[in-house]
Amino acid sequence: MQQGRAAPVRSGLSPRVIALAGVMIAVVFVATRLIQVPIPGGYVHLGDIAIYFAAFTFGPLVGAIAGALGPTLADLSSGFANYAPGTFVIHGLQGLVAGLIGWRAGLWRMALAGLVGGVILVGGYFIYDFFILRVGTGTAIADVWFNLGQAATGAIIAIPLVLAVRKAYPPIETWAARRAWQEEIR
């Protein structure tokens, strides 16, 4: 057994947020890697739906962590490690922005968040494909079509999913809220 080491605490995430982010990373991973639905001309995975769900339900912090780490782990574990750095930034930003706009919001703000998230997703991967990986115009454009399908299905399915989960399990509305204990004044 190796000797222990004392390390300073570097981040102030509460145990509740750590657990929530961890479970949402697993949910996004499974939705990306294992749940794929055939559509005409290819398939879509449910990763974006899970990212929007995390962002709309638990806010920008959990959305960004689950968005950045879930799909990145999926890329790293499926042979697409070349996409991992881009995925980390693009999906992390997608989760962050979607959470900033659509956290605990109504239908229209969630739709706006889905639209902005879609622009980040499609534009981000095009820039990564074209300028970083340099895969060529044809492949970058082909990837735009795939990502457009992802972004559209992500937003279209995530919004009813969030509304359904809010209805089925109301306690989640307050889960990611910071809680402070206050002494009762008598």
Binding site: A7, V9, R10, I18, A21, G22, A26, V27, F29, L73
Partner: peptide, 22 residues
Amino acid sequence: PFSLGMAMTIGLRFIPTFANVF
């Protein structure tokens, strides 16, 4: 940050669990 590392470890541990739940 340690808390992010912890979240990542929990995520990796829960992947098979959530796959089974689904």
